[in-house]
Design a protein around this nucleic acid. Structure first.
Lengths: 157, 157
DNA sequence: TTTAGTCCGACCTTATTGATCGGAGATCAT
DNA sequence: ATGATCTCCGATCAATAAGGTCGGACTAAA
């Protein structure tokens, strides 16, 4: 229960990888493309592409078009929270259907529902949890495995 | 994202209702049947029946067969946690696919996956959250929720 | 201008959830 | 004991969401 989607999983892996490349000590500053990540983690290329597009649209990463293009983090690893990443892919956090219920679309149970308020408190606690953890917290001490890409070798000095 | 299922919602409502009837001051000790709950909260009867059956099978409530039959809480409201209820309906908590991965069924990303460990810590924090809140907390005053950010504990591997 | 790469949206396939049906078994009233 | 009523429980169906795929348009570097 409470499982996050594969897309969200892929997003976390991809962002962590980009962060490692961008701020790691191997080839700092290098731009990362979709193919590199897909091959490194065995993620279907097209699906990952869509995930990255979504992340770019939500302002978490910047896309650079054309050859030698790819993605870069839009801001520092401490300014990107897990909540932002997950919400960027899966939409706003809502443990129950009525979490973001607008006026006029009440659920059938709402009239006598006594569990909404406590559940919203639980939801809020989970959000704080996810929003207090950043990309930086997910990359400590993890070694970056470099890949042999002709493109990458050409760029790295 | 992270939405719980309708069945789980129904389970929470039903258990709260049973608890109110059983320990409330109107008709204490009365047995509650499926139909009563379904009508009160506009829940499809057969679906609720299956939810209650599952809860009974998991030892959260006791079923009494035949006419004048129905359900009773198996233990006190303070001994039934939200985690127990949700897990009884939706299965064990697992925010990622590999949460309960058995030997030999590694996911394709596992080889280079660096996000598993921090995610498991997040999952553990959510579990504590849900397991520290009981049915009792959903019946009266404001639920007491304590969270502990995994970041503070040093989530990075 | 060519070429490699990203961008974007439509599409399909599968899995999960929500909901339904019909009978078996158990209990109480008569 | 017997019937009527109610819960139990498995099998099944439909709707929705997730996972994954395809083809073409656009962009920038060589």
């Amino acid at each position: 229960m409470l499982k996050i989607s594969k897309k969200a999983d892929y997003a976390l892996m991809a962002l962590q990888h980009i962060a490692l490349v961008q701020f790691g000590d191997v080839t700092p500053g290098r731009v990362v493309n979709t193919k590199e990540i897909a091959e490194e983690y065995n993620i279907p290329l097209e699906l990952l592409a869509k995930v990255l597009q979504t992340l770019a649209k939500n302002g978490l990463i910047e896309s650079h078009n054309g050859p030698k293009g790819g993605y870069l983090l839009a801001r520092s690893t401490r300014q990107i929270t897990i909540a932002q990443i997950l919400e960027g892919i899966e939409g706003p956090l809502g443990i129950t259907d009525c979490s973001h219920e607008k006026e006029g679309e009440l659920c059938l149970q709402r009239e006598h529902c006594n569990i909404r308020t406590p559940l919203l408190k639980v939801q809020d606690s989970i959000y704080q949890l996810l929003n207090n953890m950043t990309l930086q917290d997910m990359m400590g001490g993890t070694p970056l495995i470099t890949i042999q890409s002709p493109t990458a070798q050409g760029v790295a000095q």
